[in-house]
């Protein structure tokens, strides 16, 4: 397994990795998805997980988030296992999966308000501003099932603007976005990394980021 991120970790000033996976092993049915997978993620890094369909990208992301616990090996958050300190880990984690967490009966505003208030106290003006910034001005009060798939994805993208989470875990965030949306999301990831955050992203899209690390599965 390619783990070209390990070398970078020691070069950074922070002596402790933000997120460290050690000897991960996961199988689905009889098929081994990955074994002895180790890598570290440091502050300011964007890690793209690559691999063909069914290679276990989503499974890996869910393991790193603590959503999936059918694996061997350990995942550490600043040196401590994620299972032993869920409140500080979950407080610094923002996960957007295939299913974006946008309820179709609620409006983008209501969706965003709830998703953000699970992690932090939110200001109404910030919610409106974030929705406007992702191109949903005028759609704040529409029911989400009237929005297109791309617009619903943008609702979850608005969370990135508000969240103070340091680690972003994004599973195929580009699939339904248009060219401008892709550019904007790339810019968001770049800004987040330069502000000391870290991003793990799976995508088949060619990312236009300078300090991109990649991890190939399968």
């Amino acid at each position: 397994m390619a783990t070209d991120s390990t070398a970078i970790a020691s070069a950074k000033q922070s002596d402790q990795a933000m997120l460290a996976a050690d000897e991960l092993f996961c199988e689905r049915g009889e098929r081994v998805l990955f074994r002895q997978l180790s890598f570290e993620l440091v502050e300011g890094q964007v890690l793209q997980v690559q691999g063909s369909n069914g290679s276990g990208k989503t499974t890996l992301l869910r393991i790193l988030c603590g959503l999936n616990d059918s694996y061997d090996g350990t995942v550490h958050w600043y040196g401590e296992e994620i299972g032993s300190q869920t409140d500080s880990f979950f407080g610094s984690l923002l996960y957007i999966g295939h299913r974006t967490g946008v309820s179709k009966v609620l409006t983008p505003l209501e969706n965003l308000r709830w998703a953000c208030s699970l992690q932090q106290s939110v200001d109404e003006a910030d919610l409106y501003k974030a929705l406007a910034d992702v191109g949903l001005r005028g759609y704040e009060e529409s029911q989400s099932y009237t929005l297109s798939a791309g617009q619903q994805q943008r609702v979850s993208m608005a969370r990135l603007l508000i969240s103070q989470a340091r680690l972003w875990v994004l599973d195929e965030p580009f699939t339904t976005l248009d060219a401008r949306g892709i550019k904007q999301l790339e810019a968001l990831m770049r800004d987040h990394a330069s502000a000391g955050g870290a991003v793990i992203v799976t995508t088949h899209h060619q990312l236009d980021l300078a300090e991109l690390q990649t991890l190939s599965l399968g």
């Binding site: 959503l67 880990f89 984690l93 295939h98």
Partner: peptide, 17 residues
């Protein structure tokens, strides 16, 4: 059911509370 289908349940599980 609907929270499971739209992914809100995952967000709930990942809340720090």
């Amino acid at each position: 059911r609907s929270d499971y289908e739209d992914g809100s349940l995952e967000q709930l599980l990942l809340s720090p509370h």
